[in-house]
Computed example of a mutant assay.
Amino acid sequence: MRASFIINPYSAKKNYQQFLDLLLKKIPNANYLVSESLEDTDSFIKKEWDNTDVFVAVGGDGTISTVAQKIIHSEKILAVFPAGSGNGFSNETHFNKNIDDLLDKIKKGNFQQIDTFTVNDRLSINVSGAGFDGEVIKKFEKTSRGFVNYIKVTVKTFFIYKSIKIKFEEAYQQYDGEYLMLNVANTRQFGNNAYIAPHASYSDGLLDIVLVKKFTFWQSLGFAFRMFTKRLKENEYLSYFQVKNLKFIIENSKSWHLDGEGMKISSPIQVKILPYSLKILID
Rank of each mutant, 00 (worst) to 15 (best):
S11T: 15
K14E: 11
K247I: 09
N126K: 04
F190A: 00
K213A: 08
K213L: 10
I151L: 06
H73D: 03
G134S: 14
F217H: 06
V271G: 04
D21M: 01
Y32V: 08
L207I: 14
G84I: 12
R226Q: 06
N120S: 14
K76F: 06
I137T: 07
A3K: 01
K105N: 02
E75L: 09
R122P: 03
D115M: 14
Y16S: 11
S203L: 03
G177H: 02
A79C: 05
N186L: 00
R2P: 03
L102F: 08
L78S: 12
D121C: 08
K139E: 07
L38Y: 12
N183R: 13
K244Y: 00
V119K: 13
E178L: 14
Q270P: 01
L22N: 10
F44Y: 15
Y16V: 10
S277A: 15
V243Q: 04
V56H: 00
E48R: 09
D204S: 05
L281W: 02
K70G: 03
T154D: 02
T66G: 13
L258A: 07
T187H: 00
N235D: 15
V155A: 07
Q69P: 13
K70R: 15
V127K: 04
I269Y: 14
D53P: 03
I114P: 14
V153C: 02
F225P: 03
F55V: 12
K47R: 10
I265K: 09
Y10H: 02
I125C: 12
I77Y: 01
K107W: 01
K97G: 01
N31Y: 04
R145M: 00
K165N: 06
N8D: 09
H257I: 04
S163Q: 09
L123V: 13
E236T: 11
I151V: 08
F159C: 07
I164K: 11
K138D: 12
K47D: 07
K167I: 03
V184W: 02
G129S: 12
L24D: 04
M1H: 12
Q69N: 14
Q18E: 14
V184N: 06
I151A: 04
F241Q: 06
A200R: 00
L123S: 12
K264G: 15
Y172P: 05
F215Y: 09
S255Q: 11
L182Y: 09
T143Y: 03
I249T: 11
F223I: 04
D21Y: 07
